[in-house]
Every structure is written in C-alpha cells, then in structure tokens.
Amino acid sequence: MKILVTIKRVEDYESKIKVKPDNSWIVTDGVNYRANPFDEIAVEEALRLRDTNMPSEVVVVSVGPAAAAAEIRSGLAMGADRGILVKHDAFVDSDGVARVLKAVIDAEKPDLVLMGKQAVDVDDNVAGQLLAEYLGWGQATFASKKESLESPEEKAKKPGIRLTADKKSAQVAREVDGGLEILEVQLPAIVTVDLRLNVPRYASLPNIMKAKKKPIAEMTPQQLGVDVVPKVKVVKVESPPQRAAGVKVPDVQTLVQKLHSEAKVI
C-alpha cells in the first residue's frame, strides 16, 4: 500500500507572532519554523498503517519554499520512506496547494492520502476537502479514534484508522459537533487528521542520520502544469484587537458581587 502524507512548513507556535508595520504579512525574522503539528499526526498514522500492512511505502510531500526540505526531512526522520518537494517561494492559497497535490497524486497514485486538518499558519481547514473534490475521491475529515490518547491501544501504537479486511476501504472515526461519527470510505481516499488520532513519535538520532540519505525529489508547480495564482489573496494583515486589562479580585464574594452589579452577567 502506498500512503502519501502532506507536510507544511509553518511558523512555530512557540514563537512570538507579530504583524509587520506595513501590514503586508507577519514578521518572519527571528521566527522558528517547524512541521505543522497536525501533519506530524498524519505522518505518525501513516507509519503505523505502513508497519501493520507491509509491504507499504510512506511518501511525504510539501508545497513550499526550498527551506521546506527541512520539514520533509523531519518526516523522513520519523520514518517515512521518501519525499517530494514542490518548490514555490510566493504564497500559495489552499486551492493552489490542492491543485498542486492533485498533480502529484495523479503521478504517484497512492492508496491513501493523509493530511493535517488545518495548517496552524493560515488556519484554513480546506485543502484536504478541496483535494478530495478535485480528485473525485471520498473524504473523512477530522479523523480521531474511539480510544483515548491514554488508552492501551494508543500505548501499543495501533493505527486509529482501520483498514477493512479486503483493504479496499477504511473506517475512520471523525470528531464532529456532538460526538464521534464513524464513516467507511473507499480507497483511495483523503483523510484529514485531528488532534486525538495519535501522539506522534519523536525522531531518534539514528533515524535522523538515516533520513539524510533518503531521497527527496524536487519539482515546481510549473513543471506539474499547475497555475498557482491565488483565488484568495491576502491583502492586509493586522494585529488583533487587544482586550483591556482587567482586575484581580481578592475573594469569591467580591467576584460574584462584581459579576452581578458591575458586569451584570449573573
């Protein structure tokens, strides 16, 4: 089975994000970059599925600047087999990403594509669904599992996505409003992953060394025949409104009294 996983290079959520004075974007100097956390969960799931369904292959794909090779390497260091970098320096919107990925998938023909449900830079939560539609595939978004992250299943690193006996479909538990929905989706399919699917592994030092020798193929959207002029442009970036600082209250009685007579919310 061939599993394709997408990885986006994003600003580290531990870094301080500030808006540029000219409101064109955020300040990127001094900001650390890393793989989108949801994508690491997708890589972890792919590795578990590979290792319980040998022979299989995990391919990690990134659309981004040349520097995104580092995030592909981090996926390879977790255990993925090879990488593909579609190089583009300028901003690509989620629709452009989906169309680039479609071209890669048309060539690679994976059985399953795993993606993070959202990238924590633009917080869009749309690329996987767009891609599924462009491919004419089924989708299961927000993949989770019935067992908790503290469960024996998770400790045993079992995949949360369950392949059916004939390996032609997969059962996916989805985090939706009001509970957990179980879908069965025919392969090939797009699955976007949520936070409770698994706890991703750390790359071990030997695996980091091994990853250096794993191949990364490079290409451009032009070579794939995809026009990445955005359908949705970012025209301005501003700081969010700040909440006025509040007060500390000495005790519960004061708190309740202020909520009653000052804020008038109880």
């Binding site: 994000i17 830079d121 359908k231 949705v232 442009k233 970012v234």
Partner: peptide, 14 residues
C-alpha cells in the same frame, strides 16, 4: 483570523 488569532487578515476572493 490566522496564526491562532495572532493576526487578522483581510482576504480578497478574486
């Protein structure tokens, strides 16, 4: 909102 609400973007659908 982008970057966990650290920035508010104005986007244009073309």
């Amino acid at each position: 909102a982008m970057w966990a609400g650290n920035a508010i973007a104005t986007v244009e659908v073309t």
